[in-house]
Write a protein that binds this DNA or RNA. Structure first.
Lengths: 202, 202
DNA sequence: TTTTAATGTAAGCAGTGTAAACATTAAAGT
DNA sequence: ACTTTAATGTTTACACTGCTTACATTAAAA
């Protein structure tokens, strides 16, 4: 019964694109295939996204919103526990939404300030980390707090990257003593234990 | 004078592609433009790189070799100094070769084990970090050392990512109190000072 | 010297981002 | 209610892409 005007095409395109992005990777996502999968003409998306980067920005924004929601879940009254829970959720998000995570932190959208909503959603994620760290830490110096929080994010982000890059590897390589794979694996196996140390050594 | 057979086309293509990749970003790099810039036919590169990913892998390999060389420079007899010098070099490499760094750590080559030379060159970089950390640290437990080294790399890698993502930003944003930009900026301004703290808090 | 394999080219296919011209319709102005 | 207008859809078209296939040249091996 679909009429000429769709009514809610933009959001539907974003949802569909997010799905496709995570399914196939953002490099495989084409505007044409998106249009096809959404049952509209090839150029319909251009009414809502001037360029592909604009589309990427929308997907990334949704990604940060989802990330923020994920790391905010299951919070208790124990501020240290909250940090490790959040951190674990962050890493899990990075591993379970690898393709979307790549889009969010890669170069698909080189400058977030071009997209205020994207910048805001990314910043919201940082603010959550800072808030939770503030609740946990006794540090008062604002500058030092910011510095520590940047390190937290850096460490989390870096860990996700390395875990992803080296996690799945042919078994024989596990016998090579000169690779970080063994370390990565042991970290991976008992993430909780390591995350406690993690926040005691920022 | 150029003859039908080039003689050294493969290496010349890799060099040219590395240059173009850093200049324009790896997403803008096309095999056709590479061929044009190298004054060969559009399909000549396919004799040396079966797919574009193969070409990416070659560029990434050169990138890791360059990174390894960079962080190995200016080493002294002071093991702690060596760490900070190496770390600074690492971060600088990430910022000054941003596009190549993206190729190396992004999803252009999703699985390094498909390219033994690439895996090896990436691993060489890790080994250097571990060696330098070993010289500095008093830790004996091998497992713990590996863990710390992964954290070092993660932290460095994460810092590069965040510095890149938030470094250049419209001035007005610097007045926003709720962004990590201020922290990033202060870290950036006095990187040396922060790197010393960095290695005392792995 | 012949054969063969490596390495170059030319032509072509299917898919891409995006611009321009046109079609339909919801919303705004009278 | 009727017209105008702006939003949102489609069709067509262009230059570009990765990659395949068939063919050309030549260095190295037999």
């Amino acid at each position: 019964m679909k009429s000429y005007h769709h009514g809610n095409l933009k959001q539907e395109l974003i949802d569909c694109a997010s799905k496709m992005c995570e399914r196939d990777g953002y490099t495989k996502l084409s505007i044409r295939s998106l249009a096809k999968e959404s049952n509209v003409s090839q150029t319909a998306p251009y009414r809502h996204f001037k360029t592909k980067e604009d589309l990427y920005a929308e997907i990334a924004t949704e990604g940060f919103n989802k990330l923020h929601k994920t790391i905010s879940k299951n919070q208790s009254s124990d501020s240290e526990k909250n940090l490790t829970i959040g951190a674990k959720a962050y890493i899990k998000f990075g591993l379970n939404n690898a393709n979307t995570y790549d889009l969010m932190f890669g170069t698909a959208v080189p400058d977030f300030t071009k997209y205020p909503l994207l910048f805001q959603s990314a910043n919201k994620t940082y603010l959550h980390i800072r808030t939770k760290f503030n609740e946990f830490s006794k540090i008062k110096d604002q500058k030092l707090i910011e510095e520590k929080c940047v390190y937290i994010w850096a460490k989390l982000h870096g860990l996700v990257g390395l875990l992803r890059k080296l996690e799945v590897v042919p078994e024989k390589l596990l016998d090579m003593p000169d690779t970080p794979i063994k370390a990565i694996n042991s970290i991976n196996k008992d993430l909780d234990k390591y995350l406690i140390k993690f926040f005691r050594n920022i």
